[in-house]
Design a protein around this nucleic acid. Structure first.
Length: 456
RNA sequence: GUGGUUGUAGCUCAGUUGGUUAGAGCGCCUGAUUGUGGUUCAGGAGGUCGUCGGUUCGAGACCGAUCUUCCACCCCA
């Protein structure tokens, strides 16, 4: 019995046109990655569960796709646990593998595992799909691509500076003008938390603060209160909510708020360094902006935090993000290796380029000329010609069946193939072929060399 | 995981308070045109109305479950 085919929620098929457009974005990003000296790696689509679990917080664990063990996976399970239906205890017993949730943690694992072969500082890029058991909505899928570039083994702030340039270079080349590169520093957030006496509630504090532009000052204060941050502390944040002015003046105001927090001041210093460098170097189309509310949920960031916002007027979440994580490899037993990296959200960039109509028309590598098939002898002759055209790098096809001419022409038309060549008895005799321009309808009689010249 | 929303032809969508044989546009196929597509004209095919169950004399429409779409939370690219 035939069943209606379907694909799982949050996944997609891609048509040839869509693949071409995606390749266009990927090739642009890849080209810039390599221009900046990054080398590609790939890691498996699934990892051992313990590699991933606990790295993204409780929320993250919930969103990791677990892979059921093979075979008699229930035989090892203790009856008590099974009957209590305790997922937290049961899951590790029946699932030992999980789908990759992002590219950063697998990369950390890779670095630790290959530490003796790697020449540090190691700059790697990675473009692969990741999976999240999330509820899909606009720009959110359960399978999507991340395009990551990271450097490990260097504390230098020049890396941060280069990543900002890299973002600028990619979006400039994609003709996506007006993206905002938001930066912040975890040390500043941590310093503020310290100053207001909420050092132990750093995560709750940052998650709430992160929502400022979305839910507003009052709601943020409410959330902080409900998470146990003191009213007095929240009052001290007042200047933070009204932070304005350019990068430099915001930094001066932050300095006042942070006062004696040495960690916070360190963060200020780092941001100041980055801003000075970028001011001198300049950006092509992007704008660098300090955003103290920028927190990003991932708890492994320790220094700089980046997020890329689509140009104003495009309703899309962030199209990229990243930051510095001083001790990511520590969880896998390799200490004192600092890393910093950024990520491009391919699927969201696609949606933004589509919305703004920024894909070049030439993005599809479609066939340029179709040879009409009149029969066995003619087809043989065509293939000899086609060989010659392909040798000149002209994308050429022979219609495989000697069907009706109308059908073959319709096919060329629907595929948007700009030229067709007709080779019948007369053409074979004279070795002068009929080339038709499908857009204008014009036809000319040309020799093999003339055709090559025209189409090359 | 919570709350809401959507599903009718290949696509975009109509379909009245429940009532005969479920429609349109576009697309598709055939012919006018056996060596000429895109325009025009004539004709044609295509539906278990997401799925399963219920209410009813009668369900595309009402009820329940489930899947799916999109949206808001949570979180995030």
């Amino acid at each position: 019995m035939a069943q209606k085919p379907s694909i799982p929620k949050g996944t997609r098929d891609f048509t040839p046109q869509e693949v071409s457009k995606r390749q266009y974005i990927i090739n642009t990003i890849k080209g810039q990655f390599e221009l900046f000296g990054f080398q590609p790696i790939e890691t498996p689509s699934f990892e051992n569960s313990e590699t991933l679990m606990g790295k993204y917080g409780d929320e993250g664990d919930r969103l990791i796709f677990k892979i059921l063990n093979s075979g008699e996976y229930l035989s090892k399970v203790d009856n008590g646990i099974y009957q209590k239906k305790d997922e937290v205890k049961l899951t590790p017993l029946i699932s030992e593998k999980a789908l990759r949730y992002d590219l950063t943690v697998p990369f950390a694992r890779y670095v630790v595992q290959h530490q003796n072969e790697i020449d540090f500082p190691f700059k790697r890029y990675q473009i692969q799909p990741v999976w999240r058991a999330d509820r899909p909505q606009k720009g959110r899928f359960r399978e999507f691509y991340q395009c990551d570039a990271d450097v490990v083994g260097s504390d230098s702030l020049w890396q941060e500076v280069e990543f900002i340039q890299l973002y600028d270079a990619v979006f400039t080349q994609l003709k996506l003008k007006g993206v905002t590169l938001k930066v912040n520093n975890r040390k500043i957030l941590s310093g503020i938390a310290e100053v207001i006496g909420a050092k132990d509630k750093l995560i709750d504090f940052t998650v709430a603060l992160d929502k400022l532009d979305k839910i507003g000052e009052e709601k943020v204060k409410e959330e902080m209160l409900s998470k146990g941050i003191s009213a007095l502390g929240i009052q001290m944040l007042e200047p933070l909510f009204n932070l304005s002015g350019d990068f430099g003046s915001q930094i001066r105001k932050l300095k006042e708020i942070l006062g004696k927090s040495s960690e916070g001041l360190k963060g200020i210093e780092e941001l100041d360094f980055i801003n000075n460098a970028i001011s001198k170097l300049g950006l092509q189309t992007a704008t660098l902006k300090l955003d103290v509310t920028l927190a990003r949920g991932l708890n492994y960031y320790t220094g700089a935090i980046f997020e890329v916002a689509a140009p104003e007027g495009v309703d899309m979440g962030s199209i990229g993000g990243g930051g510095r994580y001083d001790d990511l490899t520590g969880i896998f037993g390799l200490n004192n290796v600092s890393g910093v990296g950024i990520s491009f959200g391919l699927d969201r960039i696609y949606l933004v380029l589509e919305t703004l109509n920024l894909f070049p028309e030439t993005v599809t590598g479609a066939t340029k000329v179709l040879f009409i098939n009149f029969g066995e002898t003619e087809a043989m002759h065509c293939l000899e010609l086609i060989q010659a055209l392909r040798a000149e790098n002209i994308k050429t096809e022979l219609y495989p069946d000697a069907g009706k001419m109308k059908k073959q022409m319709t096919f060329a038309n629907k595929r948007n193939i700009p030229y067709v060549v007709m080779v019948g008895e007369a053409e074979i005799q004279s070795r002068i072929y009929t080339l038709k321009n499908m857009a204008s309808g014009e036809q000319q009689q040309l020799s093999r060399l003339e055709i090559i010249e025209l189409l090359k």
